[in-house]
Design a protein around this nucleic acid. Structure first.
Lengths: 324, 324
DNA sequence: CTGTTAGCGCATTCAC
DNA sequence: GTGAATGCGCTAACAG
């Protein structure tokens, strides 16, 4: 509540001196420094960030846009992003779009308004053009937003290949892919690669397209049920963690033995895959590294430290559970 | 980038008029309004929130402090808090303390510095005294921080009683509680109530105290394993969702039949409890309502709308899965 | 109805 | 070394 002026008055000096003393910028004699510190303590002075921000035209806040915070992958991603941003002295503002692109747009506007210094987006509801309009720092996770916006993601294609290998090894013949679909999203590559390898070996690959960016358990469950109903003869599932877990649950409920009669492979390998029995076999993304690199890339742009890479693809590995 | 002054110049009017025209405050003739709007569009004007914030001494940002974002309860809580804050025109800044109370303190300081208009805290690492020092709007979830700070939480005691009833109905004789422990936290009540009822009926209740605010799956899993090792004769488990899920997993791995030979009851009933087979029986907290009420209580304080309740306890219900 | 002015609180010149 | 003055961009009060 106390302003810098009050402190200056209390200490009997000018505001400039107080500013320098408290920020350690410029020279201040030890004695006046003492006086100032005493005055500051007495008045319980705390600098007003708002004024500082206005002067520097910078808030130290980074916006993080995700489609659903209550999804293991994104909650983990945001957690690590926040931790890394914190390490670097930044704060995290979150935007949970819940599939509403208007909300995504609104956060882009906040960039314009200087409320945030940069944005990391892992949501893909908005048109690419809207992002391209922006001139301020943006980093995209898993979706190509054009040459101006760095793209960080994992090697989905390799993940799809690894999953396909497991399916081949288990001699599966009719496999279902459950996936969303969106333009320019890296996640598409895993299904493409997966399908390509398997079809080359004469395996039937069917696909169920889900609504994009809808992530609640009930819908996964319902879709899984439908698949098992309509195609009682499938012997393999490849999909994101949650859909895979839903399928596993239905299989167990129906008395289908996994992995004896069916292989189920997830993608992401987040914590819930370890909660089930048997634990889910799944391709693991290195979320922690993904977060770290995204943050550092963005901050390189914010602080204009250096040229940033346009595209960075991280390695994936297989989490060998008991379902494939 | 363009300032209000430039717009004023372009439109050939004063800055005050531009401000009024664009904010819809005060009178502006239709013609000048037109001119201003044209100028604003031409210069691609966007108001600078920082300056606005300084003037109003308000940011429209609320800080949310949680111990671990990557925990189903907290990620869900933050999701709904963010959604409600968004509805009310506020932004969400998150702080993931990961059990480090220094970080909790730092966000309290941000309150002092006017970076956030208020705080909702669901983390319990910091001394209650630190919170009491604050004069700005704070709402606490699940922990009593003194008379000045509204407390919102669920009826943990009732949840404990409901769980106890299920244990009695199944005629369990030796039950394990797995829990953290912290002062003044509502969650303690569920174990107290649970234990009280069961001991009155001659049931043995043992308790394993975990480190507080540590939420990773591996530690739950390890503790669950230890318990089953040391006490092969237990026939009941009551704990938070994750510890319960870890116990269920170990039980299945060891060939213990659930619920025939053992009852396992969780607390929170978040999504992962539905992923396992059989689905976990658990006490459900109404996270959505918890979030909504927390936000509205906080904003009542921020906007000084009215006196806020000191303490609000929400009802719980039992999610009947297949483990009790 | 509109232009001018005075701050919001701070950081940084530039004289002294 | 230090204080006074200037401005960051905006809003609200006031005079016209």
């Amino acid at each position: 509540m106390a302003s810098i002026r009050e402190v200056a008055q209390e200490a009997g000096v000018g505001v400039g001196t107080v500013s320098r003393a408290l920020n350690g910028s410029g020279y201040v004699s030890p004695e006046t420094r003492k006086k100032i510190e005493k005055a500051a303590k007495k008045l319980n002075y705390t600098p007003n960030e708002l004024a500082r921000n206005l002067y520097h035209n910078k808030t130290g806040i980074v916006g993080v846009i995700v489609p659903d915070l209550d999804h293991p992958f994104f909650s983990s991603l945001v957690k690590y992003i926040e931790m890394e941003l914190y390490e670097q002295g930044y704060k995290t503002m979150i935007c949970n779009t819940v599939g509403i692109s208007r909300r995504e747009q609104e956060y882009l506007d906040m960039l314009e308004r200087n409320m945030v210094d940069g944005i990391i987006t892992a949501s893909h509801g908005l048109e690419v053009e809207e992002y391209r309009k922006q001139t301020k720092p943006i980093v995209s996770i898993d979706r190509d937003l054009g040459a101006q916006i760095p793209l960080i993601g994992c090697d989905h294609a390799k993940g799809g290949e690894m999953a396909a290998e497991l399916m081949l090894a288990a001699r599966r013949k009719k496999i279902f892919i459950v996936s969303g679909i969106a333009p320019k999203v890296l996640a598409n590559d895993r299904y493409t690669a997966f399908r390509q390898i398997l079809e080359k070996h004469g395996v039937t690959v069917l696909q169920e397209i889900m609504e994009w960016n809808i992530f609640n358990w009930e819908s996964y469950y319902k879709i899984a049920e439908e698949i098992f109903c309509r195609h009682p003869d499938i012997d393999g599932i490849f999909s994101g963690d949650l859909a895979a877990l839903a399928c596993l649950n239905i299989a167990q409920r129906r008395g289908i033995r996994v992995p004896e009669d069916m292989s189920i492979i997830g993608f992401d390998a987040m914590t819930p895959t370890k909660m089930v029995h048997p634990q889910l076999t799944a391709v693991r993304q290195n979320v922690e590294l993904l977060a770290e690199i995204s943050v550092n890339t963005l901050l390189d742009m914010v602080e204009q430290r250096k040229n940033v890479p346009h595209r960075l693809i991280l390695d994936v590995e297989m989490q060998h559970g008991g379902t494939a």
